[in-house]
Computed example of a mutant assay.
Amino acid sequence: MTHFRISEAAELVGVSDDTVRRWVHSGILSVSHDAAGVQVVDGAELAEHTKTMALDAADVGQVRSSARNRFVGLVTKVAVDGLMAQVELQSGPHRVVSLMSAEAARDLRLEVGSKSVAVVKATMVILETDKEPNA
């Protein structure tokens, strides 16, 4: 069973340590202690909570989509060069970059500080893990 220290859990989810502690205090997550006596949260429980958070964030109202990989965030950069635009979105700890036509960026009224949803539909996703699994 995988466990994460509170600071590790916070980093994985993209929130502060205090937020994870509030989740523990309010009963959203349970806590146990590792061999060193440090508080840890269960990885599977953390994963379930992050799925709930993602569903809440992805509830954007009037849109239906077959894509399940939706990143709600803030636009941090819009660079228009001729016919193309590069738009950067910060979604929690994730930076998503999209290349689109300049016309599409204008039509979507994308500007720094605006809310947007990056929808990713890919045929291949590569996952990586640490060389030494977390105990």
Rank of each mutant, 00 (worst) to 15 (best):
M53K: 03
V15R: 11
S116Q: 15
A47M: 12
V31C: 12
L127R: 04
V60E: 10
E103S: 14
A102I: 04
K77V: 02
H33Q: 12
V20S: 06
L83N: 07
V75F: 03
V119Q: 00
S98I: 13
S91E: 08
L74Q: 10
E88M: 11
T123Y: 04
G14M: 07
S66K: 05
K77Y: 02
G92E: 01
P133S: 05
R21L: 07
W23M: 11
H25C: 04
I28V: 15
H33P: 01
E8F: 10
A54P: 03
S26Q: 14
G61E: 09
V119M: 11
F4R: 08
V40S: 02
A105H: 04
R64W: 01
V75H: 01
E132R: 10
G92A: 03
D34S: 14
T52G: 14
I28G: 02
D56W: 09
V97G: 05
K121P: 01
S101Q: 00
V31D: 05
V15A: 08
S114C: 15
V20G: 06
D59N: 14
G43T: 15
E128Q: 12
R70H: 02
G61C: 03
H49P: 06
A85C: 06
L83R: 08
V60K: 08
D59C: 08
D81T: 05
T129D: 14
M1N: 11
H49Y: 11
R21D: 09
V78M: 01
L74G: 12
V75K: 02
Q86L: 10
A104W: 01
V78S: 05
V78T: 05
A67T: 00
K131V: 15
V97E: 12
K115S: 14
A57K: 05
V40Q: 02
V41K: 03
E111L: 03
N69L: 11
M84D: 11
A54K: 06
A85V: 10
Q62D: 15
D130Q: 15
Q62N: 15
E88W: 11
S101V: 02
S98V: 12
R22S: 14
V125C: 02
T123L: 10
W23S: 09
V117H: 01
V72W: 07
A58T: 02
L46T: 02
K121E: 00
I28P: 03
A105G: 03
R95W: 04
S16F: 11
M100A: 05
E88D: 13
E8S: 06
V112L: 14
L83I: 06
A118Y: 09
W23E: 09
G27P: 07
T50K: 04
D34P: 09
P93A: 13
D42H: 08
